[in-house]
Amino acid sequence: MNASALKIAAAMILLAAPGCTRVEGPPADDADQPAQDTSPPADAGADAATPSDELPLSAEQAETGAPAEPRPVTVRVIDEQEFDEVLAGYGGDVVLVDFWAMWCIPCVELFPHTVALHERFAEEGLRVVSVSFDQPESESAVLDFLKDQGATFDNFISRYGMGIQSSEKFGLPGPVPQLRLYDREGELVHTFPEPQSPVDPEAVDRAVEELLGIEP
């Protein structure tokens, strides 16, 4: 691992600090931040096999009226096959997948909207999933960000990290952020953004409401 990669890891940690969504101001320039272990993604396989400690809480469970225990925020490293299996386990729900990265400012800015959609529509049958294209070694920094956001849905990090393999393996043609919306039959019915435009949060809202059968 060379110095550049270490610096990138350090900068990613800095991006996770409060205020990372701020676009103005110079990039963080504190090289003294501790860098995490930045072993290559191939070495992250052991982490990838570690299941999340917390099982997903279904919408049905959420409706039982039991004392509300806030679901802990978790994240784990995943590859594309495991991701397919996760999606397959959501049969019957509308699924919104948010592909993002902490190094991607529009992604970080869009993330609260994804969290808000989950809060509004989880009980109506909306599953929300996030997949980060950050380095697997940055898992703790990603988790801190997700906790800060209140992302109590299923969160993953691509085991391929911030390389082109993440886009290739997960089938993204272009850059993050990209949102994908699947209907209750598991068909991909919407992808955001439209070419040459930013993600339109209101368009996402409309599409989610339509698939859930909710009058706007």
């Binding site: 400012i105 529009p106 993204l172 043609p173 272009g174 850059p175 952020p177 435009s197 930013p198």
Partner: peptide, 11 residues
């Protein structure tokens, strides 16, 4: 042709 990778252009 390869898959571009980076930050979406800010339109």
């Amino acid at each position: 042709v390869t898959r571009e990778f980076g930050c979406g252009i800010v339109w």
